[in-house]
Design a protein around this nucleic acid. Sequence first.
RNA 1: GGGCCUGUAGCUCAAUUGGUUAGAGCAGAGCGCUCAUAACGCUUUGGUUGGGGGUUCGAGUCCCUCCGGGCCUACCA
Length: 572
Amino acid sequence: MARILITSAIPYINGIKHLGNLVGSQLPADLFARYMRARGHEVMFICATDEHGTPAELAAAKAGKPVDEYCAEMHAVQAELARGFRLSFDHFGRSSSPQNHALTQHFARRLGENGLIDVVTEKQIYSVADGRFLPDRYVEGTCPNCGYERARGDQCENCTKQLEPTDLIEPRSAISGSTELEMRETRHLYLRQSRLRDRLDAWIDSKTDWPVLTTSIAKKWLHDGDGLQDRGITRDLDWGVPAQFPGAPWEGMEGKVFYVWFDAPIEYIAATWEWADAHGLSEKDWHRWWRTDKGADDVRYVQFMGKDNVPFHTLSFPATIMGSGEPWKLVDYIKSFNYLNYDGGQFSTSQGRGVFMDQALSILPADYWRWWLLSHAPENSDSEFTWENFQASVNKDLADVLGNFVSRVTKFCRSRFGEEVPAGGSFGPEEEALIERLRALLGAYEGFMENMEIRKAAGELRAMWVAGNEYLQAAAPWAVFKTDPERAAAIIRLSLNLIRLYAVVSAPFVPDTSERMLAAMRSDDDSWPEDPARALAALPPGHGFTVPDMLFRKITDEEREEWQQRFAGRRD
RNA sequence: GGGCCUGUAGCUCAAUUGGUUAGAGCAGAGCGCUCAUAACGCUUUGGUUGGGGGUUCGAGUCCCUCCGGGCCUACCA
């Protein structure tokens, strides 16, 4: 039994996430976690909300609430949606937790003591009306290059020219519109990650099995221009982990907090600590996942994230860990995803474009979304959600191939033999062929799941469902029954067992349906079918079952059109 | 501007890393079955692999170039 630590990129707090966010980290991480648990491994699956930063403060202000209250509410909302999608986190933490405050300050102190933190004095734009320093992109003005009036301080969206906020003509605050801006001096902590460049470079080089998407981004940052740049890890904000604290090896950081990208990855560790606290466990219980000197040396650590998160997970966070000089667990494998687009454009939180997690669940059960999203995960390139494709895939794969198989087998049995596994008859070459086919498909499925090749895994799973229909068609128990009921009994006995096997192997993709299938078979045996032949004998003759309600209803053309309309515009 | 990814059947994607005749699913067509959610099974149409050039005995795969799509470019997270 292996021990596997799984983290999903932590979703930002300022609103409900869309399906693109979901499929880019949390959902595939859940698939992997569920599969590894099903195979008997010890899994720690961690996620959290990322609660600090300017956007959180602004979102709270817009909602007219104190930021801590706002974050607590939004955390509860996101946690509820995570439950709705059956994301099986062992803990869903908060980056604002006391544990993360403590760990973030701990890492910062260690880095400071190891000479990896500089205090840098710099000038930044301060908005008097807003009472805060403005990140570059929160300064708007007219682009000096093309004259676009809503250019941002980091880049003009119109002509794509990169800008400094001071380049803008008639700059104003993007928050209030105030033009009362001034340059003020401020001091910040910088992580001297450039000093760790060679170590990071060698470490990345050693990760030959990582996706190109992951390593190429890391390499770019390591070698582009002057190489890896030092990075400011504090901000002039109120909401966050205070950068000045007792024992800090620097002074003068009062009123400043750590940059979210410094504290967010540390929350992976802190959330595991939160998990231990929540379960009345001790330090050693979470250290054994994270400290290689305290039991984590045999842990396999896998991270899931969208491609936009890659630099922070390949460079900044490892730099934090390496620079601490302490034996914290580094990531072993990073599974990164491209983006899911929505009907010809991008999903957009800020523009409210696409389908959001709460809306999705209000339309259809989680399994519909899980199946489509996972079987179309944007692994190799950006992929696209269209309602036509969603309708077609879900109806065909779930309703016709899987759902209908369960229906035809259980109903046939009920009408001919009653609601119990029929006895009699024996297996022949057709059964042998089916078992061999399943053995091959299952092996391929396991290989793809192990390697996190999600689409391919979905394809193999679907092929297992198809194999059942093929078998049934060839064996034709409805015809055989007329002349040889015993033989028909054997066919149906195998088919009923097939339903239980499907429930087990399909559980990582469609957990709710899997439960319903097991319940219908009145079985609590969800052990993995290491040997298909034996697994298909789990339900003995005479074992009672229930004909389940329709597992998946079909999406009608009318519904599809209505949803297409409803989600065409902006949210709210 | 620079870097990276990408373009394969109407749609969504494969192709063991340069090796026979480019494969699946869906959609379309035909046939079969009647247990089942008009579901299932079998057969089948469909491709100058974005265009052009090159290397090679051999190119979807490598090189050059052009065209299209996307991401990143370090103060959104």
